[in-house]
Amino acid sequence: MASVSMAAEAAVPRTRRRWNAAASLALLPAAVIVLVVYLGCMVWTVRLSFSSSKLLPVLDWVGVRQYSRLFANERFLISVENIVLFGVLFIAGCLVLGFLLAVFIDQKVRSEAAFRTIFLYPYAMSFVVTGLAWQWFLNPTLGLQKIVRDLGFESFTFDWLVNQDMVVYTLVIAGVWHGSGLVMCILLAGLRGVDEDLWKAARIDGIPTWRVYLSIVLPLLGPMIVTAVVLLATSVVKLYDLVVAMTHGGPGIASEVPAKFVMDHFFERNNIGLATAAATMMLISVAAVLAPWVYARYIRPQGRRA
């Protein structure tokens, strides 16, 4: 992105800016959306988190009372714990599996296109469909457990879906199934972009293939891995549909996540204050992740050039 925008700016000579009515008019809808929704609604939400709003929004000021309530709320704490666990495992899982898939597909295999299609198709489906499919596949009585038992392993148990301690891992499995094709796709494009001479040089130096991938190719894929992590991370923060469809936060509240916490408190539990406080916490955590990245990518390079 950065390079693209720079190229565009370099290409447009710094002529005197002429005010163009039509161009300004064309940007008006986007400007309204940015001002009203992306800025206005955000500020509004943050403001409400400092109020005592329940069913209806009120604009009083209760300081950080909602936040102290939030951090005393077991449901929220479990949500946070779950999203961290899910996030780490989901991103790591997608990266590792996606990288392996990309590398193995890159070995000049037959029917490469078929494999690529198979590995990516889950990404085309919604999280609701993904959640329901895995809910059925991992069904503790009729699903995977029964398949393995039918094979003769009578005592095999796989009840993660209804096990409070394990249910998050079922979300991770479904998530990795859904998302690793994306990583494969991004990394495969990166692998195909590696200078062919580099491979030749490594063959002449007698470097084993796995070592080339690890020591030479992987560092080259850095920017693509960052891209993949950013994309995966945004879907972690937005994680909602998958949970609703697959576990509905259960058993009990064992698989609650922040997005669902916010939604439930907005629309079912009618606790606007608490919901906006949780939403603001989500905003802060995203900003905390985003800030260093924006800094590294857009602000620091410009400083260096100056």
């Binding site: 200078d195 580099l198 030749k200 040089a201 030479i216």
Partner: peptide, 15 residues
Amino acid sequence: GIAMVFQSYALYPRM
């Protein structure tokens, strides 16, 4: 028993 030099240098990056 050969050594080779390439047009694009093909140096190993990050080393």
